[in-house]
Design a protein around this nucleic acid. Structure first.
Length: 936
RNA sequence: GGGCCUGUAGCUCAGCUUGGUCAGAGCGCACGCCUGAUAAGCGUGAGGUCGAUGGUUCAAAUCCAUCCAGGCCCA
């Protein structure tokens, strides 16, 4: 007889092979058709909100692996908070304005751009951004990320643009917004400001000159040897044309400066550079007559080499010994570092150069000359004055305009700033930082240091694609118009027609008639045409999104971005919120690291180690990508490689198969009718469920703390260690060989159903596709239609039993010793399958006492045919346990014949005349099934 | 050059706060078993001087210093 047909072997259509790349899109479509997202929203009405506010990615190009990780992490949080009982609305956003898009549009337009108005160019930029929002939206959805994809926020949406303008105006009203000159890259040929990204570096030949700045103050007090001597600071520069704008000479605070007597005069240079300089100046005979600390020279004055005006000696850490003299010519209007250091000494950003690069009337002797052309004349004048110590040519890397390829200059132009200190923004922000939970905690130090030290926020850009700094200033008194009612009429127009109206309409058309300057009574106003830094755009998302939408709350519960955003979005959001509302816009800020390659190196095209999310999805599925995100401790940098993805595929298959096995054994189980009460369950089932509670508790805690890698390891370990290699393995005999409705079998099924239910819910935020797939196959009807409408399991105290767990954990240790003994017998070819074996377990004293309760189920639990517990010392020839005292194992071939049905060896096999090849246990099962009697 | 952070088996992670059974887990690998989870399942085993070097201590993966490698942000 074929007894196999009388067994309850697993049956399921749940596929072993996931075929993720193909099936995931089908699942996404099914969710969409079922309107799952809306159902979840309706289901959550009235629940407490949990708002993760999305930091907007830039609407340009395809998503990369880092963006994918960021969005997947957000999805874990949104889904797990949703399933934890919150109403977790997630509104994704896009950052739409800014230079990269404007550049790409420029490239696409080519020469056509020249004939287009700014408004036309802006329209093209808008179309471009829309295109990539669609691309990225599809890519994000493909990752399984849920949210308001049909209703995202866009920084270029008209109401959003109006909010940007209004928030900016608030800074104008409270006096934080001011204009000041600051040096920027400027192309004299294109007559335009250039961003760093628009600069190309190329080798250029420049003058290299060493110039004396005679001391005005006498240094006799610092060094008697200098009293009454002609003393000069010596500077080096490669841009002689900036000398007319010189206001200071900078020294490094830590360097020592040498006063070098060359006979006729005394020159001051950094001590370490004396010999090199003297060689350059062709001074053979010299000696150091004094050494001066930089700090002692600070605030002294020397004289400008061309004009009768002083130049201040200042200190700055940007000074180096790599070239020159260690004394740096400082023109705050013509250099970035010069400007920064100038600010701390209150120096003016003097920049007597016009839009075309010609000197202005502020330099009468050079007025009208192009700066580069002026170099020769300036050098000649210096030589005449006796101020020139050396002059040569050098080739060095110099910035050029990306468009016209001509060399660019640094030139101070009027820019708009938000002051960090006029209204106490810095201090208020620092205070606000400590009301926020920073995860990891060092995030607090990082942003605190940045806010503490940052300069005023330069918010103006001389570009086309952005939101204007929508303010007017009085043509008469130059003050910013702060008439809120008048300005509100402008912002209403933004709301209705977009910020484009600012560029399309005249001042008179924008402002209500009769608008008067409250300061001076003037009636003429000038419209500012600079646009805002895009960091301001995204920085006010808390106002444009959190405050504006009824289903969101201010402040957000959480912001989550890469650690670079301490300088970026966390930073700009903090400043705009504190400046206008006095509080941080977030309760907590979570940061993740960057995705790096197998060696921990950053990804770059040149290294060829870039991993594209689309490629990972195609080969492994989004689910494996999600598993990768869940497995890593994202607070540090996260590695990705072929090997790592392979490993996660294996882990995925293990989890999937474990669930599939349980599904296969639940094919005839109806929880409503067949479930078994705890009181009637065998201990091992109760132990499995106790362990499940521990798993649930651990995962809930980890979700709470956003520690997803803990969940991944716990889930995987539970599937492998608790289920697959122990509980489910032991269960097979009970599930397969007993009668279908045998209470023991029903108990096993009850246990598996409970485990599977909890497991599926626990994995749902991470493995959103697979959890849903399992959910559809699970037995029972009393369940939400989607796992994503369900809640996370909670640890159920009814299933907890610590003393039982303690007993069983000890038994598991013993089991480990027995498998070791079995392995030895297997290696000696005495047994093959474990069911070939009969074991005798020798235990004494305490060990025996703890093992005794397991005596009569030992063979089942060890999956051997016979197991006898003997209270005795371990005989010499038996296996002696190492880790457990007074425990030994003897392995022999089990007595009797192998039952043809259950494969367990039993001396009683053969005793039944009708079924001579099966055991009494199987006979009873056959009787219960009602099968067998008429089958042969 | 500065600020913040990281460095435990081939891989992903525990352990480090509160120094002394703390050198662990799973995967992978090797070998074996099974063929009633089968492009599955079970078992056993090998693998790390805890980035390096100094120091503190009776004792350091765990505390301190320096260095090396790497990341983010500035310059």
């Amino acid at each position: 007889m074929d007894y196999k047909k009388t067994l309850n072997l697993p049956q399921t259509d749940f596929p072993m092979k996931a075929n993720l790349a193909q099936r995931e899109p089908e699942q996404l479509t099914a969710w969409q058709q079922a309107n799952l997202y809306r159902k979840i929203r309706r289901l959550s009405a009235g629940r407490p909100p949990f708002i993760l506010h999305d930091g907007p990615p830039y609407a340009n190009g395809h998503i990369h692996i880092g963006t994918a990780m960021n969005k997947i992490l957000k999805d874990f949080i949104v889904r797990s908070r949703q399933m934890a009982g919150f109403d977790a609305v997630y509104v994704p956003g896009w950052d739409c304005h800014g230079l990269p898009i404007e550049h790409n549009v420029d490239k696409e337009l080519g020469p056509k751009k020249l004939s287009m108005s700014q408004a036309d160019v802006r329209r093209q930029c808008r179309v471009y951004a829309e295109r990539f929002i669609d691309v990225q939206r599809d890519e994000f959805k493909r990752l399984g990320v849920t949210g308001e994809w049909e209703n995202p926020y866009l920084t270029m949406a008209y109401p959003y643009e109006a909010t940007i303008a209004r928030e900016c105006f608030k800074f104008a009203v409270d006096g934080s917004l001011f204009r000041s000159k600051k040096p920027i890259h400027w192309c004299c040929s294109c007559q335009t400001a250039l961003a760093e990204a628009e600069i190309e570096y190329a080798d250029e030949s420049s003058p290299s000159i060493f110039v004396k700045f005679p001391m005005i103050d006498d240094l006799g007090q610092l060094a008697p040897a200098l009293a009454g001597r002609p003393v000069s600071m010596v500077i080096w520069t490669t841009t002689p044309w900036t000398l007319p704008a010189n206001l200071a000479v900078a020294l490094h605070p830590d360097f020592t400066y040498a006063a070098v007597d060359t006979g006729a005069e005394v020159l001051i240079v950094a001590e370490d550079l004396v010999d090199g300089c003297m060689e350059k100046f062709q001074v053979a005979d010299y000696r150091i007559i004094a050494r001066l600390a930089a700090a002692d020279l600070e605030h002294k004055h020397c004289r400008h080499p061309l004009y009768q005006r002083p130049s201040l000696i200042i200190l700055g850490t940007h000074v180096t010994l790599e070239a020159g003299t260690g004394c740096v010519h400082t023109a705050p209007g013509h250099g970035r570092e010069d400007y920064e250091v100038g600010l701390t000494y209150g120096l003016d950003s003097f920049s007597p150069v016009d839009d075309q690069g010609r000197f202005t009337d502020e330099v009468p002797d050079l007025a009208g000359q192009m700066v580069f052309d002026a170099n020769a004349g300036i050098i000649a004048r210096l030589r005449e004055n006796g101020a020139l110590l050396a002059s040569e040519k050098i080739r060095h890397s110099y910035p050029h305009c990306w468009r016209c390829k001509k060399p660019v200059i640094f030139r101070a132009t009027p820019q708009w700033f938000i002051s960090m200190d006029r209204t106490g923004l810095r201090q208020k922000s620092l205070t606000a930082i400590d009301t926020v939970t920073w995860i990891p905690a060092w995030g607090r130090e990082r942003i605190y240091g940045m806010i503490e030290n940052r300069p005023d926020w330069c918010v103006s850009r001389q570009r086309a694609w952005g939101v204007p700094i929508a303010v007017f200033y009085c043509a008469h008194c130059e003050r910013v118009l702060t008439d809120a009612a008048a300005m509100e009429t402008v912002y209403r127009q933004f709301e209705a027609q977009g910020a484009d109206v600012w560029f399309e309409k005249s001042t008179a058309e924008l402002l209500p008639p009769g608008t008067v300057c409250p300061e001076c009574g003037g009636t003429e106003f000038i419209k500012e045409t600079d646009i805002l830094d895009v960091w301001f755009d995204s920085g006010v998302s808390h106002a444009a999104v959190l405050e504006a939408r009824d289903d969101l709350v201010w402040p957000a519960d959480l912001y989550l971005e890469g650690s670079d955003q301490h300088r970026g979005w966390f930073h700009s959001s903090l400043l705009t919120a504190v400046g206008t509302r006095g509080q941080a816009p977030y309760k907590a800020v979570l940061t993740h690291g960057f995705v790096v390659d197998a060696e921990g190196k950053k990804m770059s095209k040149s290294l060829g180690n870039v991993v594209a999310p689309a490629e990972v999805i195609r080969r492994f599925g989004a689910e494996v990508l999600r598993l990768w995100v869940s497995a890593a401790d994202y607070r540090e940098d996260v590695r990705i490689s072929e090997n790592i993805l392979k490993q996660l595929s294996d882990a995925y298959r293990r989890i999937r198969n474990t669930c599939r096995f349980m599904l296969g054994n639940l094919y005839d189980f109806d929880p409503a009718k067949d479930a078994v009460d705890r009181e009637r369950m065998p201990e091992i089932d109760r132990f499995a469920l106790h362990r499940l509670q521990e798993l649930v508790a651990k995962c809930r805690r980890a979700y709470e703390r956003y520690e997803f890698h803990t969940i991944h390891h716990a889930l995987h370990n539970y599937c492998v260690v608790d289920l697959s290699s122990f509980y489910l393995d032991v269960l097979k005999d009970r599930l397969y060989t007993t009668a279908p409705a045998d209470p023991a079998r029903r108990s096993a099924q009850t246990t598996m159903a409970l485990i599977l239910d909890a497991l599926t819910r626990l994995m749902a935020p991470v493995l959103c596709f697979t959890a849903e797939e399992i959910w559809r196959y699970m037995p029972g009807a009393d369940r939400p239609e989607s796992v994503h409408m369900a809640t996370l399991p909670e640890p159920d105290p009814a299933w907890e039993d610590r003393s039982l767990a303690e007993r069983w954990n000890f038994f598991l240790e013993v089991r480990g010793e027995v498998t070791r003994a079995l392995e030895i017998a297997r290696a000696e070819k005495r047994i093959g399958h474990g069911l070939d074996a009969g074991v005798t377990i020798y235990a004494a004293n305490e060990t025996h006492r703890r093992l005794a309760p397991f005596a009569d189920q030992m063979s089942t639990l060890l999956i051997v045919s016979a197991a006898t517990l003997v209270e005795a010392a371990t005989p010499q020839d038996a296996f002696k346990a190492e880790a457990i005292a007074e425990l030994g194992v003897r392995v022999e071939t089990a007595p009797g014949q192998k039952c043809a049905r259950c494969w367990v060896r039993d001396p009683a096999v053969g005793s039944d005349p009708v079924h001579p090849d099966i055991c009494p246990r199987c006979l009873a099962a056959l009787a219960a099934i009602g099968a067998g009697e008429n089958d042969h």
